[in-house]
Design a protein around this nucleic acid. Structure first.
Lengths: 204, 204, 204, 204
DNA sequence: TATGAATGAGGGTTCATTCAT
DNA sequence: AATGAATGAACCCTCATTCAT
């Protein structure tokens, strides 16, 4: 959340302008169809200038990805170091995803459509982010298993998949249908349903 | 299953050859980077012949999608009309996805990377397939709720997301890591973990 | 006229079928856009067969051109050898063009749009036809000048252009507007106007 | 004439360079055979730059057509508003065509070969230009009829065809034979012959 | 004769990137 | 910092023609 605040309070530099424009255009047209000139147009600058601030389209896209991962890892780090209530930690992760979708639907959309499953855009570097994220999620799960709350007869990795997959399905559905979260009540219902099903299903 | 068998036993017509080549190339390079010439090369035929059998790249891709959806809907229809053991039905769906990944990893990969989350390639027509699939999955879940087995205090649609998301996460993970299922034992562990967690979490 | 009769009475051989189909398709789409497969479709045969009867598209088009020129030269020869009424000869030429447009609008259209002005399709051979035609028309005009009926202070070639251009303008206008001759009365008005204006303008 | 002067004195911008190259290439090879790469080569610029200045080949061709029609309509407007000497007006039209051929043979050639009779390239928009041109020519002719100079027993439209056809035949002949006007004397002979034959033939 | 599968050269267009100003 | 002219590789698709059957 502090990460997002940092981002939001960035001065309206040209670089930031381009970044936001890229986010919007990539969301609307997809990475492949997003032309550098579209991004420049959206930012209200000449397209030559984009190259002054970003080495290439690849580079610009990486900046977008990094924004996503930086914020996510900040959240994960904060959550991991918090206490020992594993269930609450999982709840925070879900809330983070839903909050981000609410407050920054462009970024979430790009994550879902261009990163999450895209082999096309998947470089070795980018894969690392995923592995790290899953490893950290797995740590939380494993913590739950060690403390005897979560069943130990299933691999922590498997439980992680189940948890993450369940959560991501909601986000993906909203993203693909272009539907906003209709309010805090709906958000709580979603959090509750995921958390309840997962926790009572995965607990001992 | 019979659908897949039928597909697999197709005579090695040129059209089929092209289809299989397209599947491989799209899997390896992504739809956008898959050149028609790559596909022709892979099929061992001349460039123009691809256009003899498929009107366009779009058309060829649609053929791939239809293969996926046809098989999936055949499974869903078979499962839906089977009996009244909802838990078993869900198990069959999971098995279907894992089986398909095992037997046809190319097709599964294309589904995961190019269809499942791709806004870029998402036409109105293609979206319909998703809606239909989710509607049918939801019917199964609702059947479970009506019969008093699954808790009715969560929306059927939410439970569907949780179930589907959990399952898809496993497939996606294997696809993105390019890891084969290492055997029937692993497959059963996966089925068991998803089914157990979901069922005991979502049952009354 | 006899030439056309000959053409019309051709047995419905495959070759003739293809020829007629070519005429129609070239008229409708223009030579460049007329595909060999379109022609075959129109003729109701496979496109491989077209190549059995015509060496190439070029060859097929040449057959069309020859049909035009053969008929035209037959008319010119007949007219030239007729008598010494130059005015009547010119009238016959006009009537021939209008008759041909009436009875064979496809052929006339192809002449106007694809031959008459097209540098693109103009080979050295094809140019010869034009030169020959103009030479023969010029002979008729010169005959009129020698007999003292037409003024000799303008080059025969110039008078030929004026006469031919005037006449062709009517045909081109009808062709481009896709308008049929609305009857014999209209035809006579056209003949009369061209002939009267040219003759009283060009006579001594 | 001022239009042409304006065009000729255009600064040697890249756009103009491309335009002129297009004119030459289209003249030499015909629209269909004129490759965008030919045009770029002729203009001495890179391939992509053509697309920087013109949206498409169609667009570039339209620019050529507009140049033709703009100049022609400028002339017609000037002539129409001049006085009441209809014969002189017709003389000016003839002179305009011959002048244009002399000073801009490329443009005239493209008009004759690619516009004048080409159904292939004829869009609804392009047809409008023709209709407008003929309507304006017809106005002049009708003016002559109303003033009692030209015979009123022939439709104005018919006299227009005769006049325009006669004139265009000269231009077409020169274009197709790739012959330049050999001098002012020849030009005057042509003007005189067309004007004399038409006027004495069409006057009362 | 007849079919249509098979070939492959060719051309229009796109767009990331560079560079002179 | 800023512009947009300039470059050219890349790729989809068309279609005349050939050829095996």
């Amino acid at each position: 959340m502090s990460a997002r605040k940092r981002a939001a309070s960035l001065p309206e530099t040209k670089q930031h302008l381009i970044f936001e424009a890229a986010l919007k255009v990539i969301r609307e047209k997809g990475l492949h169809r997003a032309r550098m000139s579209d991004i420049a147009d959206r930012a209200g600058i000449s397209y030559g200038l984009v190259y002054h601030y970003f080495r290439s389209k690849e580079d610009l896209f990486d900046a977008v990805l990094n924004r996503w991962w930086d914020e996510l890892f900040a959240l994960i780090d904060a959550v991991a170091g918090e206490g020992d209530d594993v269930r609450a930690k999982l709840g925070q992760v879900i809330r983070y995803f839903l909050d981000t979708y609410q407050q920054n639907p462009d970024l979430t959309t790009v994550f879902v459509t261009e990163i999450s499953r895209s082999t096309a855009n998947l470089t070795r570097d980018r894969l690392q982010h995923f592995k790290r994220f899953f490893a950290q999620m797995e740590d939380i799960i494993r913590e739950g298993q060690r403390s005897g709350l979560l069943r130990g007869d299933f691999k922590a990795r498997y439980l992680t998949y189940i948890f993450f997959g369940a959560m991501e399905a909601f986000v993906s559905a909203m993203v693909l249908a272009d539907q906003p979260l209709s309010g805090d009540a709906q958000k709580e219902q979603i959090v509750e349903s995921i958390l309840t099903v997962f926790w009572s299903g995965a607990s001992v």
